[in-house]
Design a protein around this nucleic acid. Structure first.
Lengths: 136, 136
DNA sequence: TAAAAAAGTTATATTAATCTAACATTTTTT
DNA sequence: AAAAAATGTTAGATTAATATAACTTTTTTA
């Protein structure tokens, strides 16, 4: 288990996120589902899973299901949270089209810092409260 | 000249942006300046310049200066504009620290869509006008 | 102006992420 | 339960971006 606390690549983050999503929607994640979702080949998924397993982020028994470790799940949740915040900001505050907002968020979720995310969350909250005030 | 209108990689965009910046600040750009700025080796710069020259975005005479073509300059300006808008939003509206804002913007400038950028510019303008109103 | 230093280039290697093709295992169907 | 289909794995290739090391050209300096 390669446990140096280095940042994951965007690609590996996407694998974690996808596995978490599949578990949420289908209860289980299989290689085939992941490759379909990410539009890559099974062989690519396999290689990525080996890397992630090596880092202690996924569990993958040969020919079996794919699961996230606690740490892997935490990372996936973190990225999903970033995506959700970005999508909300883009659609509800900027008025960006849903599809474009999602596409942008899925790329930016890998690069926004925790500091900027925190400020963005605060800002969204503030704008929301101002909006309510006006409606009263 | 490989003139398929495909999107550039983040790395190549960074080279264009850096060359544009050096031209702006120093009048000229040299391999050494680019490598220093991007923290890569001269040999890496060379390879990138060959790729960019092949795409008709830079001009690079052997052992000579590096310049941008009109198209290369246009792309560089576009990326720089995205960076400026993002930095402005992060610092002036969200209140993010200057250094972190710049770091985030330098990554996100490669992924934000034109649509989202346009909405963000509009939003910044609107917030600015509201701010002025209050001050009156 | 010749030697030394700096800058630039080329050849070769490495890493990450992907692919295709061949092979292995599991699941489904008849 | 045997054959066929689906799924998963492995081996080997490719592409992009980088590095190191050796080499070339240009610039500086003594």
């Amino acid at each position: 288990m390669d446990n140096l606390n280095k940042r994951l690549t965007e690609s590996l983050e996407n694998y974690l996120e996808t596995i978490a999503m599949l578990k949420r929607e289908n209860k289980i994640a299989r290689v085939k589902d992941i490759s379909k979702e990410l539009d890559v080949k099974n062989s690519s998924v396999n290689i990525a899973l080996n890397v992630l397993a090596d880092k202690g982020l996924v569990i993958h028994e040969k020919y079996g299901y794919v699961d996230l470790t606690e740490e892997g799940q935490k990372i996936a949740d973190d990225i999903q949270h970033k995506e959700d915040v970005l999508v909300k900001f883009f659609t509800e505050i900027l008025g960006v089209d849903q599809e474009i907002a999602l596409k942008d968020a899925c790329r930016m979720e890998h690069t926004i810092s925790d500091e900027t995310l925190a400020k963005l969350i605060f800002f969204i909250g503030k704008i929301g409260r101002e909006g309510n005030k006006r409606k009263k």
